[in-house]
Every structure is written in structure tokens, then in C-alpha cells.
Nucleic acid binder design. Structure first.
Length: 270
DNA sequence: AATGGGACCTGCGCGC
DNA sequence: TGCGCGCAGGTCCCAT
């Protein structure tokens, strides 16, 4: 799943339901999500730990765990394209089920099997996080514009580049560009200072609105309670090829950019 | 260093 | 009905 708003939604929900809970055991039905160590080692290490904190970095969800001997470890999850985290879980086919006390499970489902689960002593040492760019909500307009002006890539590719800015994927890149009225295939450095500022504001606005509605449920994404997020109904572009633009009635176009489906309004976005 | 294309997976919808 | 193809919210690896 998904992008920053979806992971942020799950994080907020799981903080309410899981903080302080103990992981009694883990059921690994499919070991593919866990690749950095053996199933057995993973299970032994996680057993008996307590969830002390839950936070998000980019599109990754991170649990801070405290072991019985006071040792700290971090459970890092990336849902990639089709991962789901469900609590309380009820799926006997979940790839991984974390057993909490009273026999209640946290399920990790993942249809396409691209997701990842890692147990680490220090999440910050992971190369994935070391090269990750700033969070949109801690960045300011000036940083964004300055970094943008140094780049030659097409603006949509750059927004989806996690080392440039963290958390934005195909849907929110498209929606933010529409709101800012900037065409996705423009080269980043051709954006005026004013356009860059408008784009940054649009990113923050779109991500915030999506979080407020619990994310975009397209295909697999659901909230941790299994219910759909409400932002897909608010999409102005995504999956609307051939339909009229809400602003100018022109037909929304779809093209491929950097290997990804890319929607835009040929009239509104310049 | 930065950029773009293909690979990794499974399953769905479409056209023939 | 059935098959093959293209497509899907992400990221890594590799060639340029």
C-alpha cells in the first residue's frame, strides 16, 4: 500500500490499540516477507517483547520493542504494493500473524508478496532509511524550492523519488501536481520559484486531506480495522482517464512516465 | 551523481 | 468459457 497518508492512518490507529501490548508469539506462514534472518531466529527474538512506540518514516511503519531483559529492538514493516495490517486479525491465511495476549492477532496480509518485515537493533542503520529524504511535514517551502531547482528529472519522478522527499507515491504525486497546475513531465529545474512554492503547498494540502479521510482505498489498501479509507472518492485525477476535469471539463489524459501510469489534465496543468 | 528501464510477485479485467 | 496481455499504491539493481 501505499503512500504516506495510508501508513500514517494505520500508525495512528495502531498507536491507539497496540501501545504497551506484549507480543507473545508470531506465526509465520510465509517466510518471504522476512528475509534478513531465519524464521526461527526472528520468532525467538520477537517473542516476549512489548510495543513501546509506533512511528512512521516515509512509507515505512516502525515499532519500537522492549525485550524482557530491557533490550530495545525495532520491527520495521513496509507494505509495498498490497500489504495490509489488520487488528484484530482474523485471517488464517495471513502471511504473518503476531500473537498478542488473550489470543488476539495483528495480521500482516500481502497479496503480491512484495512487502517486507525486518527486526533490527537500530532502524536508522538500514540503507533504505539512510538515503531517505526529508518528511514533507518537516520540510519548508524554501528547502523544497532550492533542492528542486538543482534537479533535471521530470517533476513527477522527482516527487516519487524517496531520497528527494519521503512518502509520496504515484497517486499523491499526480494529485499534488494537479492542485498546483503543473504538468507531470516538466523538468524540475524549469519550475519557477512561484510554481515550486505552489507545488510544495499542494503536497502538504493533499497529504493532509488524505490523512484526514483515512487514506485512499484503491484495490488492496484498508485501514487497520479492515474498513476502507475515504480519500479515493476525492481524487481529481487518479484513475479518471477520459473523464472530465473537475475544473475545465477537458478529458483527463493518461500516459506512462518513468514506467508508471500518469494522469493529468492537458488544459489545467502547464 | 543522476536518471530511466526492467525485475520482482500475484491477481484482476479486458479483448479476442 | 478460456487464454494471453496489460496493469496495479513500491523499491532495488543495473546500464548509461
Amino acid at each position: 500500500m501505499p503512500e504516506l497518508p495510508e501508513i500514517e492512518t494505520i500508525k495512528r490507529e495502531l498507536k491507539r490499540t497496540l501501545l504497551g501490548k506484549k507480543i507473545v508469539g508470531v506465526l509465520i506462514r510465509d517466510c518471504r516477507p522476512i528475509q534478513d534472518q531465519s524464521k526461527q531466529k526472528f520468532a525467538n527474538r520477537i517473542k516476549g517483547t512489548r510495543i513501546k512506540a509506533i512511528f512512521r518514516r516515509g512509507k515505512a511503519l516502525i515499532f519500537k520493542l522492549l525485550g524482557p531483559k530491557g533490550n530495545v529492538s525495532f520491527l520495521v514493516m513496509h507494505l509495498r504494493m498490497s500489504g495490509q495490517l489488520i487488528y484484530p486479525g482474523n485471517n488464517s491465511k495471513a502471511r504473518v500473524s503476531f500473537r498478542l495476549s488473550k489470543g488476539i492477532y495483528l495480521d500482516f496480509n500481502d497479496q503480491r508478496c512484495l512487502g517486507e518485515i525486518m527486526l533490527l537493533d537500530d532502524w536508522r542503520q538500514l540503507p533504505f532509511f539512510k538515503r531517505m529524504g526529508p518528511e514533507p511535514f518537516t520540510m519548508n517551502n524554501r528547502d523544497f524550492s532550492e533542492r528542486l531547482s538543482a534537479r533535471n528529472a521530470k517533476i513527477k519522478s522527482l516527487l516519487m523519488n524517496q531520497s528527494f522527499i519521503a512518502g509520496i507515491g504515484n497517486i499523491y504525486a499526480a494529485e499534488a501536481l494537479f492542485k498546483a497546475k503543473i504538468a507531470p513531465f516538466r523538468k524540475a529545474q524549469t519550475l519557477s520559484h512561484k510554481e515550486a512554492g505552489r507545488l510544495f503547498k499542494s503536497i502538504v494540502a493533499v497529504l493532509t486531506a488524505a490523512i484526514n479521510r483515512g487514506g485512499s482505498s484503491i484495490d488492496q489498501y484498508v485501514r487497520s480495522n479492515g474498513k476502507k479509507g475515504g480519500y479515493a472518492q476525492k481524487h481529481k485525477l487518479y484513475d479518471r482517464e477520459g473523464k472530465p476535469c473537475f475544473l475545465c471539463q477537458s478529458r483527463i489524459k493518461r500516459t506512462t512516465l518513468a514506467g508508471r501510469g500518469t494522469y493529468f489534465c492537458p488544459r489545467c496543468q502547464k
